[in-house]
Write a protein that binds this DNA or RNA. Structure first.
Length: 317
RNA sequence: GCCGGGGUAGCUCAGUGGUAGAGCGCAGCCCUGAAAAGGCUGGCGUAGACAGUUCGAUUCUGUCCCCCGGCA
């Protein structure tokens, strides 16, 4: 308790792809003696680089960045693992007397870090895979009626066509003997608030500016050898994993390599998907209770975050 | 110049004698253990222009304009 008085503030920075989170976070981290924890569901993977707009090494040399390149595409990873690992880093950084900055665009990860995730008994990975495989073979209609029977509450919340959520709910029921609604009613565990005092900023830009930045960034990725990266991954046998994990652009480049479309079409598709992704992120972040900042100038934004963060004493933002 | 095909939503196109749809785009939204994933919702547009037939034309007829293919 006492040691939290000194400093237990945790800075969170979220926002859509391409707004400039990484640079601003680095700037702030340098000034407040911070370390960065990535909340980006794709920068975790060490095999994919160019297309994830990964924080470059020269930036990582200035400030420690955690949860980047720490797993392989072959590993399975999810929100639950993220929360555990992120909290581990948060504690370590606080203990070292530094400030943790959690930065990324994966809204779910940030939300769960703030609000916690419901507890569920650990299940054997092999058994889970088996159940998933079984459910994957069933017809959607049947799955949904099974859900209605075993968990009417969840069935009311989940759309009948949302196969992923229906499968997850049923998987929990089969593996634990209790339906997902039961587990979701249990009190959440691992809230970030137990570890420190989080301050949450959400960075945006004017939409037109944002879309222009995305278009330019995609062109730059292609100029930087993105296609070669994918070709090499394909040779190394990662094609299936790229499709499965679905980082934007990778599956599309595989299609391009297979002759499905030309370079110009490929670039257009990737830009379109990225723009749509940014829009989806915006929708997600609108619901979060962080402080919104529309970036006009990165320096000013960093200054503003600094000021607000220093002022912050644990109540509100 | 002649012959044929076509001009309908931002794009590609469907369809109907009673003033129009579908995909994509775009916009909005949902989301708690695969999340850069998964799902839902949203279409009044001078129907190329003008004239005619008709109670009524985007749909039929004529003229003109434009696009595409073939022949000269």
């Amino acid at each position: 308790m006492e040691e939290h008085k000194v400093s237990s503030k945790i800075l969170l920075i979220g926002g859509p792809t391409g707004v400039g989170k990484s640079h601003i976070a680095l700037d702030v981290a340098l000034r407040i003696n911070g370390e960065i924890i990535s909340a980006d569901s794709m920068q975790f993977y060490r095999e994919i680089n160019i297309g994830t707009d990964k924080v470059p090494v020269h930036m990582r040399e200035k400030v420690a960045h955690h949860l980047i390149d720490h797993i392989s595409l072959k590993d399975s990873f999810d929100v639950h693992s993220f929360v555990n690992e992120a909290l581990l880093h948060v504690r370590k950084i606080l203990q070292a007397g530094k400030v943790p900055l959690i930065v990324g665009g994966s809204g779910l990860y940030l939300r769960i870090l703030m609000k916690g995730i419901f507890p569920m008994p650990e299940v054997e990975a092999g058994k889970q895979a088996e159940v998933r495989r079984y459910l994957g073979e069933q017809g959607l209609c049947g799955l949904y009626s099974l859900l209605k029977k075993t968990d009417p509450e969840a069935a009311g919340r989940i759309h009948e066509k949302d196969r992923k959520r229906i499968t997850r709910a049923l998987e929990v029921y089969i593996l634990t003997g209790k339906n997902i609604s039961f587990w979701q009613r249990q009190k959440s565990e691992n809230p970030l608030a137990k570890t420190g005092k989080p301050v949450y900023f959400i960075l945006t830009r004017n939409k037109e500016v944002m879309y222009n930045r995305i278009n330019r960034r995609v062109d730059y990725m292609f100029d930087s050898g993105w296609i070669d990266e994918v070709e090499k991954l394909k040779e190394e046998g990662y094609a299936d994993m790229l499709v499965y994990k679905a980082p934007i652009g990778y599956a599309e480049i595989l299609d391009f390599l297979a002759g499905r479309y030309n370079l110009e079409e490929l670039k257009e598709i990737v830009k379109k998907k990225t723009r749509r992704f940014a829009k989806k992120q915006l929708t997600w972040f609108r619901k979060e209770d962080g402080k919104w900042i529309e970036i006009e100038n990165e320096q000013e934004t960093a200054d503003m975050i600094m000021r607000e963060f220093m002022k912050f004493d644990g109540e509100g933002v």
